[in-house]
Design a protein around this nucleic acid. Sequence first.
DNA 1: TGATATGTTATCTT
DNA 2: CAAGATAACATATC
Length: 271
Amino acid sequence: MPELPEVETLVQQLKRRLVGKRISSVEVLDRKVVDVKIKKILPTKVLKVWRRAKSIVIELEKGRFLLVHLRMTGHFHYLPKKQQSTQRIRESEKFLTARFHLNNGDLLTHNDIRRFGFIRLLDKKKIEVELAKLGPEPLSKEFTKKKFRGILNRRKKANIKTTLMDQHILAGVGNIYAQEALYHAGINPSRKIGSISPVEMNKIYVQLQKVLNSAIKHHGTTVDDYVHIEGTGGFQNYLAVYGRKKCPKKHVLKKVNLGGRGTYYCPKCQC
DNA sequence: TGATATGTTATCTT
DNA sequence: CAAGATAACATATC
């Protein structure tokens, strides 16, 4: 599922392909997912593409922005003009939500099997309001250990794993990387924040950044169905606990349910 | 067939 | 009122 590293990968790839180009027309095939108002502002140039939490922001002309959230099953496909055989186009036809035609003849398509994601058109004020609801970016320079301990302490009675995944507390971490970071930090995911010492919090901070950076380097984790524009991620080969039976030290893992999500941990390495 | 998986949010409970 | 917990959303896969 796309979390911070997966979205970051996609953003880098979209940036290369879209920035400076013009969107000449858009076909909206699923109005629940894609805001049809996009059609009214065409043609428009793509000025910037960036990431905030698990969202993709595409900045257009005249202070307009596309806010894209892939949720679980959102995908982009990019078809350069030369590769637009009927077969390639048909690949993602079934769950297609929109086709973006670029001025150079290239085609960007978006599809979403579960239709949980969205592509919304917002003005500057509205997007600022939306993004302000999110917690700090875990990889930003301003995000210090001290700040991390500060935001955790706002949720003393909640468990650490669910809190790491709460987008209002911390932006971009989901079920995979919360579990991985906690394994490497040696912390049981069920621990209440109130029982976690400052030293342990620092450990989580370090491991969380480490695992996120490493996953970005490997272009994210592909389980089930995440794919970026250039193929699949590679971090699934480095997962310590998520979806596994044994930890790297060959201990048998346990699986519990936290916040309605499956959570793997090693009873020997994490306490 | 029914359980499971997923991110986010609306809504319920404490 | 707030913190925390849970159901709901859609659909494929096992």
